[in-house]
Design a binder for these strands. Structure first.
Lengths: 342, 342
DNA sequence: GTTAGCACTCGGACGCTTTGAGTGCTAACT
DNA sequence: AGTTAGCACTCAAAGCGTCCGAGTGCTAAC
């Protein structure tokens, strides 16, 4: 689709103005903003053509124009000048996230910062990937027949669980447990540690199998847990402020609350920053919303996602660099804290 | 305040009807519901007196009556017949919460269940108390100069943190760390493990002090973290469905999102189940809401809180027993999983 | 290709009326 | 004394017509 320079300028201005105000733009007010000096009638003609191409829409006959989804798309792909974050904001973000905490904290904070920064809802997922391994397993007795199992992954994710058995937990049993787990499980990829693998492992233990099985089963569950990405959501309340989301606010909130569709949405994220405008994502509840998704990498094949969910009239020019900056930062922090120079 | 039997009956019926429908009740419709056979005029007289006593309110002259805060209070204190949970719901709750997981999971689940059960927002806090002790400390190297510190409390709360030093982490250092922590810290109350205590402890180590300090400082931070109750919130979106909360929905959500006022609210919870109607809590944002709070105990002096936040027209007769049931269940589960017969 | 001019459209605001649920009061009834 | 029927009154909500103005599309002139 080729647009004359003037049409481009008009489209860009409408998009930017609408993003700022949320009000449809008429030919007259547009005339005052545009740098070129043309009459409103000329602008009307151009706008009519843009509307015919499907780039603009009219809420009703006597209202101004509003960008259509295609209009946003064209703007983002061809017209947008991204505005890099100023140093001040960068520093603010960096200090808000801090540095010395574990991945889960970093991601929670990143979500908070993103929500505040954008005035939208923000999602973050814990890193996951095929090559994630078990870094450590601990078993802490908390009663004569009860123990807390703790599993730490190579991505720095910690999972825990209480486990109960019929036979008392003795020191020899603990030793046996550590022997088995250290030699057979630690260092293995999470995906290798499923329930059936645990059963064959337990079977090979002979006499101890009976007392050991609950704990090995517990480890299997932890491994499964840890290989699933956790989704953290923040700033839902920000969405209540947008008029255009008002009518299906409840649906939207319910959608976000429910982890499954959200994770389906997120798992569609590809490299770099990705923008899904309105119906470009396939969820009815998000038909009036836009989503910005970006991956962060944690070395190896492991990666997670940060995302922003808001109305279609997002300030893409600002948000895309912001999200990119945050994913880079998070990726760097997590890579550093996990891999170091090991 | 003494009320005639008939007035009591009328008040109770208005409260219950209003809780069900959310619509003001007029004398005529009330006449049809009431078991006694009196004319609407008589009811009007009684209602006028109840209104004069401050137990009923009129949204406007030509509307029916609505219970005032005092009316709810009287109803709860004198008229309400609580409806115990049926076995079916009990089983549903029990299976939803499961059993074999750690405190944080249990509480998260309890929050979810409570939100679903009540159609309101639910809060849950992790247990805390003066006597909470350190049960275990682990230090897992994740790089040549980086380690993950893990702290487990006697209440089963796990906290972790990445720590970095300037000197490489060696096997002797690790041994020293475990010696010090096992002998000096494990078993101590969390409140004893503050930063200054750590500094004096480090000082006593002589040569190792320098390399050890960052880790001891990390432990101090973890102890501080662990002694603060974490608040988990669920089901905010449920609140959007209530007309009476609509106008300050945004404020309400922001209030809930912000941990501090929420924890102030929760910390006011006393023994058994406590109901705060409308302005009985001191937060402007909750003036149109009611809060039900209940403590669960985990043996010793440790306890946490479960709560429900919704409109003033909560179904108290059902919710109070529900919340009580859940706190009992959570208390039992956490006590069992933590203390066992140790 | 641009512009001035003009008739036209349509949502939103305003004001008016109607409707009906609900009230308070009075006077009669038990 | 308590209860009831009856009635005038109130007031929010809904419906309706009008006006206003922002904005449009079209035409004819530049």
């Amino acid at each position: 689709m080729e647009l004359s320079e003037r049409k481009q300028k008009i489209l860009a201005t409408i998009v930017e103005q609408y993003i700022r105000t949320g009000e449809p733009i008429g030919s007259k007010s547009l005339m005052e903003i545009l740098p070129m000096k043309v009459s409103s009638a000329t602008i009307r003609n151009e706008m009519a053509e843009l509307a015919a191409m499907g780039l603009l829409e009219q809420p009703h006959t006597s209202a101004g124009r509003v960008p259509s989804h295609a209009g946003y798309r064209y703007y983002i792909d061809h017209l947008m000048h991204t505005r890099e974050l100023d140093d001040d904001s960068r520093r603010k973000i960096e200090s808000a996230i801090g540095s010395g905490s574990d991945p889960e904290h970093v991601l929670t904070r990143a979500g908070e910062v993103l929500a505040d920064l954008t005035g939208c809802a923000a999602v973050s997922t814990t890193p996951a990937g095929e090559s994630t391994r078990i870094r450590r397993i601990e078993m802490v007795p908390v009663g004569s027949r009860t123990a807390m199992l703790v599993l730490l992954t190579s991505t720095g994710i910690l999972k825990s669980r209480i486990c109960r058995t019929d036979t008392p937990i003795t020191v020899p049993l603990l030793e046996r447990f550590y022997n088995v787990t250290r030699s057979q499980l630690v260092g293995k990829p999470l995906s290798d540690v499923h329930t059936t693998a645990m059963q064959t492992l337990a079977a090979s233990l002979g006499a101890d199998a009976f007392s050991m099985l609950p704990f090995l089963a517990g480890i299997a569950e932890l491994a499964r847990d840890a290989s699933q990405t956790d989704i953290h959501l923040d700033g839902q309340s920000n969405l209540l402020g947008y008029r255009e989301l008002e009518d299906n606010a409840y649906e939207l909130m319910e959608f976000l609350r429910n982890g499954e569709p959200l994770s389906a949405l997120i798992s569609s994220s590809r490299g770099d920053v990705q923008v899904l405008i309105g119906k470009e994502n396939k969820f009815r509840q998000l038909a009036n919303s836009s989503v910005i998704l970006a991956r962060y990498d944690v070395g190896g094949d492991e990666s997670g996602t940060l995302g922003v969910i808001g109305p279609t009239r997002l300030d893409y020019a600002k948000l895309i660099p912001s999200v990119r900056f945050l994913t880079d930062l998070v990726g760097r922090l997590l890579t550093r804290s996990i891999d170091d120079e090991e």
